[in-house]
Design a protein around this nucleic acid. Structure first.
Lengths: 234, 234
DNA sequence: ACCATATTTGTACTATCGTCCAAATAATCC
DNA sequence: GGATTATTTGGACGATAGTACAAATATGGT
């Protein structure tokens, strides 16, 4: 070996994608420059332009790379979950089918699924316009399928409530991946926010309970909260 | 009135703060430039530097402005909730005391609380270093107080699980404020994601149920999930 | 070995970034 | 009303952003 700089990357395109994925999912899209990505991948900034034309194009390619396998995996797990006999077990299996692929990507290396989900979390927070369409197109179908499956297991709960609750699930999932150290901090070390296995179990348990809760309409009529927050202006 | 440009702002500093708050909470910290803020506030870019020295200083001042009143409000509501006799009602009141101030700021104008919470959501996603310390210092005390109160209402559930579940609550809360249109979309119009009042009720109901769920330790021993996601490398 | 193609490199361009500063203007106090 | 302070203005600075492009180099087929 002559020098470190002389080692040749077998596939620079992949290296750039991996570096971009890691940086975007950690610092957000806007905080990372093309030059940062190139340096992390051991490539020239011009190479990024050559392979992906624009920075947006690079982000798009990352999504293309992951969406297919992840949604395929989700469909498989969902189909298997639907076949579970016991209703309670089936509901839990459905939730697990939604959560698991977010943590473990089928084909990619360790932490691949986590990284991409963290990326999605940051992108939805930043309100990235390029990604918004992909989200709506690619993920809404999956979300609808899951909500339908959940509704079959809990037919007495209005779909609207189930939409809200699975929305909360996704928010909790995102937040756990984005700030795992907060759990460690608040639990004073008795829990590890980066322990994906445990996070999944906690998330599934909590979500199943939330989904089974009585809907807002029925049950004992509740008092209207003291303060009236009105409608959010946006 | 002579011309629109001649109207003088009574307090330019406040106008800049308001504009920055709105823009940061919508597009994130990195996507918004000092010039964007100045223009939205009808001010000169130099004015921003004059009042807040740096862009970070501006963000810091926004936090300083909101943290005090919001946490004070939370403390009051939490104290009131602790006095509720019925255990089930008390738990619900505690959760409501945590959620309500995030939607309605005590002193500010309409949507002030929502805007600041949305800002916090985006900042935690972007991993802003300037803000991380404030979060840990200012909000962890409040979070601990709430977890303690919840633990009093649910003494049979280990604190660790309650930390996880209140973490999920915050994630769900953030996500609802960041992408409210997703709820409207997925529910096909039967729910309005921007309806803060309804969002609060759904969130409280779901969270109370999640908090009351059996902890992971006890209950029927569960199967270990097929795939072993291992530990997230970060 | 040679050619055609694919990729990498280095550099340059324009735009915009955060921040600074001196001059202009408004507000305040004696 | 004049002096003093506070604020606003417009322009400038160096740094860095995304992207483009020609030259250099590597690759693969024949």
């Amino acid at each position: 070996m002559k020098a470190a700089a002389s080692t040749r990357k077998p596939n620079m395109r992949e290296a750039i994608l991996a570096a971009a994925e890691e940086l975007f999912s950690t610092y957000g899209f806007n905080a990372v420059s093309v030059r940062d990505i190139a340096q992390a991948a051991g490539a020239n900034p011009g190479s990024v332009t050559y392979h992906f034309r624009t920075k947006d194009g690079l982000l798009l390619e990352i999504y293309r790379r992951h969406c297919g396998p992840m949604n395929r995996r989700r469909s498989e797990l969902l189909a298997a979950a639907r076949r579970v006999r016991d209703l309670q077990d089936r509901l839990e299996a459905i939730v697990r089918a939604y959560v698991l692929p977010a943590f473990t990507s089928g084909s990619d290396l360790a932490g691949g699924g986590t990284r991409f989900t963290r990326l999605r979390a940051i992108m939805s927070a930043e309100g990235n316009e390029v990604v918004r369409k992909i989200i709506a197109q690619t993920f809404d179908d999956t979300s609808h399928a899951f909500i339908d499956a959940i509704h079959e297991s809990l037919p007495h709960i209005p779909r609207t409530d189930l939409v809200w609750r699975s929305h909360f699930l996704l928010g909790a999932l995102y937040y756990t991946l984005v700030t795992p150290e907060r759990v460690s901090r608040l639990s004073r070390g008795s829990a590890d926010g980066t322990d994906a296995g445990h996070a999944i179990e906690e998330l599934v348990r909590a979500t199943v309970a939330a989904l089974q809760a009585a809907p807002l309409d029925e049950g004992a009529p509740r008092k209207i909260p003291a303060a009236n927050p009105g409608r959010v202006v946006t």
